[in-house]
């Protein structure tokens, strides 16, 4: 994700308490940034939804209540990159089902586990890594539909 940084780029960092519904605050910021960056309404809705899921994971799976998670928006001419970083215990992406199916969820106790699949389908790139000194960092990128992918 090492794209060129120019004077027209902008970067915003938001710190939010690890409390449910704060995903809506992050989504509201994403909407403003994406609108200013010239994304279409459909793309903005996809960005909001994907970011909401990443924030929910940060809030829930970080197991780090009474703390904060950080959302960083980096907008360039061609794309918007968003990273969501928590300070929790972290998780291994290999252990997550990336392709859950509705037939496997029905009649199963566990009906959750859709977030990562949704992020992967709604964004153009996603990278999950361990945050320093602890926690999980989810970086995702969405290109404007008119822009060629690098």
């Amino acid at each position: 994700m090492g794209d060129t940084w120019t004077e027209r780029d902008m970067s915003i960092r938001v710190e939010l308490p690890t409390v449910f519904k704060n995903e809506l605050v992050a989504e509201a910021v994403a909407r403003q940034v994406a609108e200013l960056s010239g994304f279409s309404e459909e793309e903005i809705e996809e960005i909001e939804t994907a970011l909401g899921e990443a924030c929910i994971n940060a809030i829930e799976y970080s197991k780090c209540f009474n703390d904060y998670f950080t959302v960083t928006f980096t907008a360039t001419e061609n794309f918007l990159q968003i990273s969501v970083e928590d300070k929790g215990e972290g998780f291994s992406p290999e252990e997550v089902d990336h392709n859950p199916t509705i037939s496997s969820k029905l009649n199963s106790e566990y009906k959750r586990g859709w977030g990562l699949m949704l992020i992967e389908q709604l964004m153009d790139e996603i990278q999950i890594s361990q945050a320093e000194p602890s926690g999980t960092k989810v970086e995702m990128k969405k290109y404007k539909s008119t822009a060629d992918q690098q």
Binding site: T49, G52, I102, L106, G113, W114
Partner: peptide
């Protein structure tokens, strides 16, 4: 306006009950 994945899980429960 918005449904998140936790809400989706709830809708799956409805579908399960209905089925």
């Amino acid at each position: 306006k918005k449904i998140n994945s936790m809400g989706i899980a709830g809708i799956l429960e409805l579908i399960e009950q209905a089925t």
